[in-house]
Amino acid sequence: MGWFFASGLFTSPPVQVALVIGAVAATVSAVVGVLAMVRGLAFAGHALTDVAATGGSGAVLVGASPLGGFLGGALVGAGAIALAGHGPQQRRDVATGIVLSAATGLSALFLYLDATTNATTGVTQRVLFGSLFSASSSTVPVAIELGAATLLLTAVIARPLVLSSLSRELARARGIPVGVVSGVFLVTLAMAVGLSALTIGSLLSTALLVGPAAAAVRVTTRMSYALVIASGIGIVSTWLGITLAYDSYNWMPHHQSLPVSFFVVVDVVVAYGLCSLVAARRARGRRV
């Protein structure tokens, strides 16, 4: 196994930090992602990642921590999307799209200013595509606390959230404060996006949010199983991605390693493909 787990993989402090942060981000994203699937919010979740990019690039500009920037951006984006619209999916998508587009424009400006005024090199790559190995060890406790808070919040709103996702009317008729519930959920979504942006970059954080959840609901009809399967896929993808990225230093001709985020995304997509295959085979089996 020496060829796979290259020397120094588990003893290197940056890798240890990466493994912990990656696992936290993957778990939180998977859980929130499954609930986002129930709400049909895949697109909104993705838009938040782009707004997180704005926050991240803005944070670099003023010298603040990227996690704070990601989180702040995603929270503002969540607020904007909540204000921009209810109504049919189509209108909601346009409203979400406008928020996304405005945010991306701002990221363009911030990144430009980062590069020109601060002469920060590689900031585009760091903010958008992540650089997990450069996360500082002081981020670990923050990430764990944030992750725990997100999971707790999700558990608190779970039941009203599911019912109001199925039918707003039905939920309101039972006295559920639907607006509060969806607001709180958007906050948890923003927190998941922030953590995931820290791991694989703001542009790619959609992968951890949407991929494992979408894969899990293909193979199970039970919410509790879906949560466990999605978390499993997320964690395995992240850890495998970290290992492969670490190893890639040895494979590549110029010892220019490939980014962690690339491998994580590929792992997630492969997992999604496998789950889809399983689902398709089962469906065929049922028909025969």
């Binding site: 129930v38 709103i157 039941r159 599911v162 199925l166 899990a216 039970r222 879906a226």
Partner: peptide
């Protein structure tokens, strides 16, 4: 793809408004 079975939905009827 909503991962919710009929029995889960009926169970939600018991106390969906509780936190």
């Amino acid at each position: 793809d909503v991962p919710l079975r009929v029995i889960d939905f009926v169970t939600l009827g018991l106390d969906a408004e509780r936190w």
